[in-house]
Design a binder for these strands. Sequence first.
DNA 1: AGAGCTTGACTGATCGATCAGTCAGCGGCA
DNA 2: TGCCGCTGACTGATCGATCAGTCAAGCTCT
Lengths: 213, 213
Amino acid sequence: MNVASRPPTDTQPDALQKILEAAERTFAEHGFDGAGMKALATRAQVSQSLLHYHFGSKGRLYEAVIRNRSTLINDERRAMLDTCDLSAPDGLAQVFRALYAPALGPSGGGRAYARIFAGLIAGNARDQALVRDNYDETARSFIAAIRTCLPRVSGLEAAQIYLCALGVLATSLAKDGRAERLSRAPETPRTNEELVNTLVRFALGGAEAFQNE
Amino acid sequence: MNVASRPPTDTQPDALQKILEAAERTFAEHGFDGAGMKALATRAQVSQSLLHYHFGSKGRLYEAVIRNRSTLINDERRAMLDTCDLSAPDGLAQVFRALYAPALGPSGGGRAYARIFAGLIAGNARDQALVRDNYDETARSFIAAIRTCLPRVSGLEAAQIYLCALGVLATSLAKDGRAERLSRAPETPRTNEELVNTLVRFALGGAEAFQNE
DNA sequence: AGAGCTTGACTGATCGATCAGTCAGCGGCA
DNA sequence: TGCCGCTGACTGATCGATCAGTCAAGCTCT
């Protein structure tokens, strides 16, 4: 089909990438069950059979989308976390910035993966296993960092703080425009940097409320 | 089928209720697209046709589930909000308690509706309209209360605070057990009161971080 | 008798998955 | 150099299963 338009010396790694991108968008818009393999293949401009040829089943394609994106985000999160100065006065703010910025930046995949990520919170059986396999390890690093910054909180409290911070992220990612609608404010395009600052401020305040007990 | 076992003088208002309960549970476990009308009818112990007789379509049954539960929650929220003393030192804490407690109490429908609620955050087209119709009005009351308690925050900031607080709720509702797994703490059954206290503390700290600017 | 409720049987559409088969490119052999 | 045979990438056609929704007939009350 598009073979003739392809550069001749190019082996074709683009098909897999096109499928992953189309799958990410389609799963984001309709969820796992709502997304159809046929529509997904049409969007990727390949045949439906190719999806099964490369990924075997719908479930494994979904897993590949999650794994692909979560690896990008988590790698950047861990890199930023390593550069945090946990003993600095703003150490905890740096930690939350390392949590939020990668999900909102180029690695985060924009609104498309954001919806999938928010959906993971709903937590049916399939998603819970994916969260565990793709996010728990990095999550523990962040929880350890939170405990370093707030030595008086328990491990369970630190985990709760981490989850609350994640919930803040998920809401802000997916519910674009609702804040403006609820406050009747005009739709002003906010930069990712401004959004990160807002989230960090909220999470920081919430976390520190557990320190002063 | 179960007609014979029903008390004879009983008119059957239970069919509708059984359908709503089964629908809530099934939608919670599989999402809108993943839930099948046939399985749903089996769970409710009625025929699939009865679902269409009473609700017309799958979409309207879904809307009925959301409307039914959100009415219960929002009525209790507004009642609690009306009793808040916004000028008290813990006025904002009372507001967040009014936001959280009804969703976690008997009116909240337990884990079942919690999953649906968390899924609403993901925000595809259908869900966005439902959120607007069923939650925006009460949300504006809470945002106004937040502004009263924190007079220095703007309307948009107050809306963002409200959404962050909601995200905290959604995460805690759906991801049961993950905090314990991440912190390797034993699974301790926590009362709803303890959970509400934790959420209120976090949201209160996060909100007050916007006041001190 | 008649209205409201409930049922089983059924429909067309769409689902994910499978199949045999096409095609281009490449290494081995003459 | 030129041909053979293999392999990986990819496709259209089609499968059985399941989907939401429809319909006429039967039931139970009043």
